[in-house]
């Protein structure tokens, strides 16, 4: 515009030059990197009218149920989630609806950002939670029981229950969904696949128990946190992992290696998959 204004039109130029300077100043003041993570949740089925709209009742409950599942999974990642009571840190892990998502119909969510003033900013728990939920849906639809068990082992059963409740609500309404995050997405193919997945994630398909054994720890990988435990009088080896409450997994090598002990493990078994063993606390080891 400035290039097209004759030099003698000094007032016209002055006005535009002033606005150009203001625009440059505004651009310069924007932080270099403002990454806002967004996720999209879209729905198909009877409550959805193409990419035109969605039944309000359904959308309100479904969006709320999904957001609840995210906060529950985020809390479980922080190891704060208990079997009952309010979901901890719910406000910090709240999703923000920032728009609608097209391609059927749904919502665009903004995730809470980590504190950008931190020297080493960490990824928000909500981001991890969303990845896990997307993966949980994918594995519930297509994965083996062992693959699902491995993921469920990382998430508190209550959080899995919240995710399952979301799917059950969709199933009740004949709807299915897709989740997109960080340029990757998973979408249920149809209502049958969603119902199949919802059934798989039901509480009665997840067996959670504590089991005690006498035996000897054969070793622990300090970084990988995987252990082997040989049961007394049995050539079978229990392979499991050291839970997050034990800061230094290597303590098992230092204090308990090849010593006869009683150990209690938390066991999760999904469907017909292999049981997964976790040593949750050093208090669960006794002589």
């Amino acid at each position: 515009m400035l290039a097209e204004i004759p030099e003698e039109n000094v007032i016209d130029r002055l006005g535009l030059e002033s606005r150009l300077e203001e625009a440059r100043s505004l651009i310069a003041s924007v932080p270099e990197e403002v990454i806002v993570n967004k996720a999209r949740l879209t729905f198909r089925g009877p409550p959805v009218v193409g990419s035109h709209g969605i039944v309000a009742d359904f959308a309100a409950v479904a969006a709320g149920s999904f957001a609840k599942a995210v906060t529950a999974v985020a809390a479980s990642i922080s190891d704060n989630l208990r079997d009952k009571g309010p979901i901890p840190n719910r406000q910090e892990n709240q999703l923000l609806i920032t728009g609608t998502a097209i391609g059927s119909f749904g919502f665009e969510f903004e995730l809470p950002n980590p504190d950008n003033n931190e020297i080493f900013p960490v990824r928000s728990k909500a981001e991890d939670a969303l990845q896990k939920i997307k993966e949980l849906f994918r594995l519930a639809a297509n994965g083996t029981d062992d693959e699902v068990a491995e993921l469920i082992d990382e998430i508190h059963p209550r959080a899995v229950k919240n995710a399952a409740e979301f799917l059950e609500y969709l199933a009740e309404n004949g709807a299915w969904c897709g989740v997109e995050f960080k340029d990757e997405y998973f979408r249920f193919s149809n209502i049958d696949q969603l119902r199949f997945s919802a059934d798989r994630l039901k509480e009665d398909n997840i067996d959670e128990r504590d089991e005690s054994y006498r035996g000897e720890f054969q070793g622990v990988l300090p970084k990988g946190r995987a252990f082997e435990f040989k049961k007394s009088g049995d050539k079978n080896i229990i392979k499991g992992k050291v839970g997050v409450k034990i800061d230094d997994a290597d303590v098992l090598n230092r204090k308990f290696l090849h010593q006869a002990v009683n150990a209690e493990f938390h066991v999760i078994q999904f469907g017909k998959g292999q049981p997964r063993y976790t040593l949750e606390s050093l208090d669960n080891i006794s002589a």
Partner: peptide
């Protein structure tokens, strides 16, 4: 405010700017 105006009789943009430079600086 964006002002669209007719130049007063006998004036140019340059002569106006000389008369009152501050008037045309948005700052």
């Amino acid at each position: 405010v964006v002002t669209f105006y007719y130049l007063p009789e006998g004036e140019t943009q340059q002569s106006l700017l000389i008369k009152q430079p501050a008037l045309f600086q948005s700052s």
